[in-house]
């Protein structure tokens, strides 16, 4: 059976029933609501959203770990609820930010064992392990017990585990979570390389790092509170913001600024301040550049001294702000976890 779509979901929904103790009344948490996605074979597709948006829930359903409460989903043309065994032969998954693995086994043994589950002959498995370990930079640790690895190296081991079986569809759930900048960069370049070398493979990546989604993904779906708000290429998503102007301003101020005063200015679409080491960083979205003078006047009125001012290109973060009305970190601070 041919399957032009690697992943398809139709009105997919998931509701968790939560009760903390027996006396408490059960409540419902909507983790996914009417999710309709179509991911083409060969695509590197990103699911971008804050923690608790429902990204992991979607991955769990697609990888047959969790049953949906409504709707349907297909992976490689196979129904995930009716044909889970067939789906599993064609997929693999890696979750970031965790230290899974059998600590008593070496890196090579851990990886070899998983290869056996997929029916990969021993010699071929060892060849792949060696090659992938060299690419991600842990070739010298193959004989180290995985319990002796740092979190970052363990994460790299798990990333190899995902790619080792050469799956038709690979699910990476926050693959760079918890990694340092260098390791994250290595992982991202490896993912891109794998996709370039395997044009018929499909990769679904969830992340809450805008740069990661922007840098890696062919298309991105922005998800919040269980709903897909937009789905397009990063360039197209950002193009919708071409009429707006984005500034980053670093100021020194005696206290936090009064957001409300800036948002009152006609033409200010978004204003957000983040304290940094010796200054405040302001992210400001304006309807037109001319409004900037009024913003500067207000800064002066609030005794803020400008250190630096930059006009910048729109990012996926700006797309998210446009769709949700808040920055991702603001949403995360108040979100009920659904992931």
């Amino acid at each position: 059976m041919s399957h032009p779509l690697a992943v398809k979901t139709e009105n997919l929904g998931r509701i968790y029933k939560i009760r903390n103790n027996r006396k408490e009344k059960q409540r419902e948490l909507v983790a996914l609501e009417n999710v309709n996605l179509e991911i083409r074979e060969g695509e590197l597709f990103g699911l971008l959203g804050p923690n608790g948006a429902g990204k992991t829930t979607l991955i769990k359903i697609l990888t047959t770990l969790l049953a949906p409460t409504s709707g349907k989903a297909w992976v490689a043309g196979l129904d995930v609820t009716r044909q889970p065994a067939e789906v599993r032969k064609r997929i693999n998954m890696v979750s970031g930010g965790e230290t899974s693995g059998y600590g008593l086994l070496t890196v090579r043994e851990n990886l070899w064992m998983f290869a056996q589950f997929y029916g990969i002959p021993s010699a071929e498995a060892n060849r792949r392990i060696k090659k992938l370990a060299e690419i991600v930079g842990i070739a010298d640790r193959l004989n180290t017990k995985s319990s002796d690895l740092s979190t970052g190296l363990r994460q790299k081991m798990n990333i190899i585990r995902g790619f080792l079986t050469d799956p038709e569809v690979l699910f990476l759930d926050e693959p760079t979570l918890g990694l340092d900048v260098g390791a994250s960069r290595d992982v991202r370049s490896f993912i891109r390389r794998w996709m370039d070398e395997n044009p018929h493979r499909t990769l679904l990546l969830t992340t809450h790092y805008m740069v990661e989604a922007d840098e890696l993904c062919d298309r991105v779906a922005i998800i919040n509170q269980g709903r897909v708000l937009a789905c397009d290429t990063p360039a197209h998503l950002k193009q919708n913001l071409r009429h707006e102007v984005f500034f980053q301003v670093w100021v020194v101020a005696p206290h936090l600024l009064e957001d409300f005063a800036f948002l009152q200015i006609n033409g200010v679409k978004h204003f957000h301040q983040s304290p940094e080491e010796d200054s405040l960083r302001l992210d400001i979205t304006l309807e037109e550049e001319a409004v900037l003078s009024e913003v500067i006047n207000e800064l002066t009125a609030q005794s803020a001294r400008i250190l630096r001012l930059e006009k910048r290109e729109p990012t996926l973060e700006d797309v998210f702000v446009q769709l949700v009305g808040q920055r991702m970190e603001e949403v995360e601070n108040v979100a009920v976890p659904a992931d």
Partner: peptide, 13 residues
């Protein structure tokens, strides 16, 4: 302990 059950479950096992 090992946090691998989900990977065993998503494998053709």
């Amino acid at each position: 302990h090992y946090r691998t059950l989900k990977y065993i479950y998503t494998a053709p096992v």
